[in-house]
Design a protein around this nucleic acid. Structure first.
Length: 279
DNA sequence: CAAGAATCCTGTCAGC
DNA sequence: TGCTGACAGGATTCTT
């Protein structure tokens, strides 16, 4: 799925076209995504003015003037596509369509249907079941060496898995966890409780820097992800280890000392890392 | 309680 | 070609 940088990019694209606009028409073509959409969603949206956007972890919140927020998750394959008001190419997987008073058309396309849409009252956004248990935003001041150390204390699970757990830090996914661990020179297999201290002091700034650089690049495009204008992100070219199994490690000198990037499976997900650099 | 496995769904690609 | 299995950016729910 889109991870934090991709979601941030999509949210900015939505905000640019939708903030202050009135939704003149809303279509729900297929309400059964990961969970059923709320009944009457199209009616609630029609005629509403979009006031602002917010991102929390990998969720997008679109606030409406009636006091509702639309809570959107893109799952693994979700896209938001904005274009002139005419039918999109992908009619099979375009589950929701919004039209604005300026003649723009926003389509939510999600072939795998792991995404979700819900409504929540704006003043109670953070009490929504899907947001209530989330850990700190990694780019916020609440995410620090101290807070990460506290979250990991006593945990035996590998640091890779711990960083994917949205309760510890909210918004990282498989790509950026691999990249940040490489940059911090921390082994993905190391037990989480051994991170507090010097390793957390390396990890936290690398997590923040990786995410910031990825946002600046418009995210990473692998298969499904595109920005709202259909353009690809380009941070995938900056990946050091993700998807680079058997390629030379970017920081090890050539020769027999380093076998290159390895791929292992942790908790059912691929992990890419360099065993020589990451300890 | 914590950790790993199974699960949802569709598309794509490698290998035979 | 066409079939089969593995795998994919996630996160909840079910089992150990």
């Amino acid at each position: 799925m889109p991870e934090l940088p991709e979601v941030e990019t999509v949210m900015r694209g939505l905000a640019a076209r939708l903030e202050g606009r009135v939704i003149t028409r809303a279509l729900v073509n297929r309400p059964d995504l990961r969970w059923p959409m709320p009944p009457g969603l199209a009616v609630r949206l029609t005629g509403a003015r979009v006031t602002s956007f917010r991102r929390r972890a990998k969720y997008i919140l679109m606030r409406l003037d009636g006091g509702d927020s639309v809570l959107l998750h893109l799952g693994m394959s979700g896209r938001m596509l904005i274009g002139p008001n005419r039918p999109n190419q992908d009619t099979l997987h375009e589950h929701v369509v919004l039209e604005t008073d300026e003649g723009w058309r926003v389509g939510f396309v999600d072939p795998r249907r792991f995404g979700s849409i819900d409504l929540v009252r704006t003043e109670a956004e953070d009490q929504h079941k899907l947001l209530a248990g989330l850990g700190p935003e990694p780019l916020g001041d609440d995410f620090s060496v101290a807070s990460l150390s506290e979250a990991l204390a006593g945990k035996k699970t590998p640091i890779k898995s711990a960083l994917l757990d949205q309760k510890n830090v909210a918004g990282l996914g498989n790509i950026y966890v691999c990249e940040a661990l490489f940059r911090a020179k921390v082994s993905p297999q190391r037990s989480a409780h051994t991170i507090p201290g010097a390793r957390a002091a390396r990890l936290v700034p690398e997590i923040k820097a990786t995410l910031e650089e990825a946002i600046a690049a418009g995210g990473s495009s692998l298969r499904d992800y595109v920005q709202t204008n259909g353009e690809l992100g380009y941070f995938q070219h900056a990946w050091k280890v993700y998807g680079r199994e058997n390629e030379p490690c970017p920081t090890c000198p050539g020769g027999k000392a380093c076998d290159g990037v390895k791929r292992i499976t942790q908790a059912g997900r691929s992990t890419f890392y360099c065993p020589r650099v990451q300890r």
